[in-house]
Write a protein that binds this DNA or RNA. Structure first.
Lengths: 135, 135
DNA sequence: CGGCATCCCGTGAGATACTG
DNA sequence: CAGTATCTCACGGGATGCCG
């Protein structure tokens, strides 16, 4: 199916107005999602939440190197976009539960395709980089 | 096939060492690709080059709002990772042709899946954002 | 426990000017 | 035409400390 002829599907093959308007590029939902997904922690957090729900400090302990600040900010960002839900249980002390929303769950699929690609071709990229670093 | 039960495939569902080691996260090819794809111009350029080859200033004119500097840097970055090829034709004045490499072409597929998701769910995200902005 | 406020720094990215 | 060189600034992101 994926042979020598690489068929490029759907929206990326859709005709673009040339020159690509600045306005359109910035407003594009694709650009939007790419920026979300391109930050340092969002995807990792989504992957963890894809397995089960987590509490705040539980996430904090589960991700080496993330600061509280960035964990908060990233979770807020994901929540803001409707990808993650935040549930406060009025216990004492309070417990806060984070989950993937159904929307967030659907994002994991195309994300997974990209991740698979990365794993499959990571060596190719590494090779290309070394070739470029050659004297 | 994709019904109520969202099945999460492949690497994103693979078991992770908890806590996720900082080292591992930074070295991960997925992280790598996400950052590449998460910058402002890479994907747009790849989409254009997916349709046909372009010359430098032709790209520059085709993308409203990009600076020469960023066009150069982004192209160099893509070339560095083996996603784009740069061919200099020794004419006078020199013409330089940019193309997607076969590797770059394969990346267009999972990228397309993500783009499709973004287009399909852009409204949901917008709604979630408005809900959060509500008084 | 689950945060927010503050300070600080590296880098992504634009503007402008110059070159083979 | 196809870039390189500077300067500059905004912003992502880390460290630290305080709070309900």
């Amino acid at each position: 199916m994926s042979d020598t002829h690489t068929d490029v599907p759907s929206v990326v093959s859709a005709p673009l107005p040339i020159p690509v308007p600045l306005e359109e590029h910035q407003a594009c939902p694709v650009t939007d999602v790419l920026r979300r997904v391109g930050d340092r922690w969002s995807v990792l957090i989504m992957i963890l939440l894809g397995k089960r729900s987590y509490r705040f400090n539980e996430l904090h302990r589960s991700i080496e190197g993330i600061s509280q600040r960035m964990l908060t900010r990233t979770l807020r960002g994901l929540e803001h976009d409707g990808l993650v839900s935040r549930t406060v249980h009025p216990t004492n002390p309070p417990t806060v539960e984070y989950d993937l929303t159904p929307l967030g769950r659907t994002l994991l699929e195309p994300l997974s395709a990209l991740a698979d690609w990365a794993v499959a071709h990571g060596a190719d990229i590494a090779t290309a980089r070394e070739r470029h670093a050659a004297p």
